[in-house]
Amino acid sequence: MKLQDYVKYLVCIFVVNFGTTYCNKRIIVPSLRSIDDQIASRHERSVLDLLFGRFRTCGACLCGRPNRKATRLLGGEYTESHEFPWLANIHVKSNLISGVLINDRYVMTAASEIIGATAPEIKISLGEYDRCTLDISSVNVSVESIILHPEFNPDSHTHDLALIRLSRPTKFEKRISPVCLPNPGSTYLGQVGTLVGWTTNKSEDNMDTCRPRKLGLPILGYNECIKSGINPMNFNDDYGCIGVVGTSSLVCENDIGSSVQYRSYTGVYDLIGIIPNVNKCDNVTRPTVFTRVGPHLDWILQNTKDACYCTK
């Protein structure tokens, strides 16, 4: 057994008290390219992140677990009640946008929708499902500070990401828990992504929606995005796209801040994208563009050191 294998084993022993790290020989001897090895490698990354202090855990909580055991995606169907417990409603002055809870103190959304707003002008609702019905079980939280991505460009809308720091830590329960951050270096190309949020169905006249919807669409590569109608002059490495080749975008202007997620075969959701302010609600053939979260992991972790994360 190599020295690095012993180190990995000792790391597993060190964090076993957290109760969420899966440590066994599959991590120590990664020789088989099986599904179990893929699970082990993901946990290994979490262990190493813990060891080197990239983030601290909130205890035994788990991220990315929906409140629905099985999911069947139709064309923009409504979600089950609190199916995605990380969804957040963000009240910005008189506007209402979407966001996602990523740990106990921060909600992520699109920077373009909160630029110019101050912390007192923003309120966050967690555990809310039906926007049109008073829900006394939801939690309303004030905002302490706003962190826009330092490279956010309000003209081109590149790096259209923002972190909103809540005024107090979030108490996790069935209706309120965080989504997982994406795996480092993963592109998720060729996988089915899940677009989730209080998105509008273009076939409806009413542009407001009460309950969140979900829609499964393939995650496309750069060449497919360009062939599908996206102008290459407006598409950069910061973006990804999701959709069916030959169809128009399925999101509208008021879907900004909604999330693109990936559901693993084990049912765990990773946050892979945030909808920026670049998509148009028209019948022009082009897929939906999203800001990729993966390339911004360092920025996210650097600016959320005061928060704790749930593990995969």
Rank of each mutant, 00 (worst) to 15 (best):
N103G: 14
N24G: 13
F14Q: 13
H43A: 08
L87I: 05
F55D: 04
V100F: 03
T79N: 09
Y9V: 06
S41K: 07
W86T: 03
G76I: 05
N17A: 11
R68C: 10
F14A: 13
L96T: 11
V92W: 00
G75M: 04
G19Q: 02
F14N: 14
E44C: 04
Y9T: 04
Q38T: 03
R54A: 13
L96A: 02
L10D: 15
S31F: 09
G59L: 09
D37Y: 08
I27K: 13
G75I: 02
G76F: 00
I27V: 15
A70C: 00
R68S: 08
L62W: 02
A40P: 00
Y9M: 08
V11M: 15
L101K: 01
K8A: 07
R72N: 05
A40R: 00
D36K: 04
T79H: 02
N103F: 13
S46Y: 10
S31K: 00
V47I: 11
D36E: 10
V11C: 02
S34W: 02
Y22M: 14
P30V: 07
L50G: 04
H91C: 10
C63V: 01
I13Q: 15
F18H: 14
H43M: 01
R72M: 06
T71P: 07
S34P: 00
A40L: 05
Y6K: 11
H82Y: 07
N24K: 01
T20L: 06
L10A: 15
G99I: 11
R56M: 13
F52A: 03
G59I: 02
V16R: 15
L51R: 07
L87K: 05
Q38A: 08
K69N: 07
L50W: 11
Y106F: 15
L62P: 00
H91T: 06
V16T: 12
S46P: 01
D36L: 05
A40T: 06
L10P: 10
L96H: 02
R33C: 07
V11A: 10
Y6L: 08
L96W: 01
E44P: 03
I28S: 09
T21E: 09
T21R: 06
D104A: 14
N103H: 14
Y9K: 12
R42E: 08
